[in-house]
Computed example of a mutant assay.
Amino acid sequence: MTADVWLPLPPETIEGLPEGLDYLFWNGGEDGRQEFPGDPADCVFYAVPYMQPAALVVRPFPRMRSVRVVQTLSAGTDAVESGVRDLPPGVLLCNARGVHEASTAELALTLILASLRGVPDFVRDQDRGQWRGGFHPALADKNVLIVGYGSIGAAVEDRLAPFEVARVARVARSGRTTARGPVRPDADLPSLLPDADVVVLCTPLTADTRGLVDAGFLARMKTGALLVNVARGPVVDTEALLSELESGRLTAALDVTDPEPLPADHPLWHAPGVLISPHAGGPTSAFAPRAKRLLTRQLHRFVNREPLDNVILTTGRTGA
């Protein structure tokens, strides 16, 4: 048996990979039907293809009897969690913390500014050759609430700093103190929502956060507030959001939707006050160099039997 490592980026493009392992390239192919690069039973480290359907990336799991590490290149691990039970016990599931913070936070700020300042209308008017002025809200002096204050949430706040916002409130699963200020626990959300002009969702998708932004959550948001989702689509109840958008009470900027991809005939496309981007937070020029550094670092730790970074769970343990 060989010690194979499956990589979704060509191994020859990644500098500094440790010796002693056999590197095989597999990204599923454009149609998702690409043959496995080797016997899944020989794979000891599986770096999951990026931005591919869950059904594709978990397909080799039942045959991966020697795998010790499953490394995603996404910030969340929800795409692979459906197949975790097919893995042997003791497998480390790791996420890509450190890869997507810069590009996702950039997009979050882009969506906030574009929505507040009316940029989509400017683009439509340019297409029509129409000059229309008007008053638009600024980000300055706004209260911003970040829901999900992990590394991406913190990166969003870093980029808010120059914009003279009035206040940033932070919410995570459990409360804590940071250099920028307190992080409030999830239980405090109902009391924080009415004061927020902009609510930015950065939370991972879990059983607890699925449908977190429901009709009750939205009803607590102040009239005229902006909801920004750079997390996962199912964090938001789409029907509840549509109701608020169609009433004109709230606006939204969504990089992720439920369902996704959003069907061409879905009413969310044409709802008033919504800006939609096609899950573009991660796939930028910032992705490849950071992903390669993560893979190289993790594989060196693996070869040297050192603790890996970003471990989310170990299979075979309670809850895994």
Results as ranks from 00 to 15, higher is better:
189 L>R: 03
223 T>E: 15
93 L>P: 00
81 E>F: 03
317 R>V: 13
10 P>W: 04
244 E>W: 03
276 I>E: 01
4 D>K: 12
160 L>D: 05
28 G>L: 00
226 L>W: 05
143 N>A: 13
291 A>W: 05
262 L>H: 08
191 S>L: 12
161 A>Y: 07
116 L>E: 00
28 G>I: 00
306 E>R: 14
267 P>H: 06
265 D>Q: 11
274 V>S: 01
61 F>I: 12
17 L>K: 07
300 H>M: 08
253 A>D: 02
125 D>F: 09
33 R>C: 06
144 V>C: 04
112 I>F: 00
226 L>T: 00
311 V>S: 12
201 L>Q: 02
293 R>P: 04
219 A>H: 10
170 R>D: 01
238 T>Q: 08
152 I>T: 03
157 E>A: 13
85 R>L: 13
111 L>P: 00
97 R>E: 15
62 P>T: 13
112 I>V: 15
72 T>I: 02
43 C>H: 07
29 G>V: 01
301 R>C: 12
13 T>Y: 06
168 V>H: 04
149 Y>I: 06
102 A>V: 15
216 G>E: 07
28 G>D: 00
287 F>H: 11
61 F>L: 09
18 P>R: 08
74 S>R: 06
21 L>T: 14
35 E>T: 11
7 L>N: 01
290 R>I: 05
85 R>F: 07
104 T>G: 01
87 L>T: 05
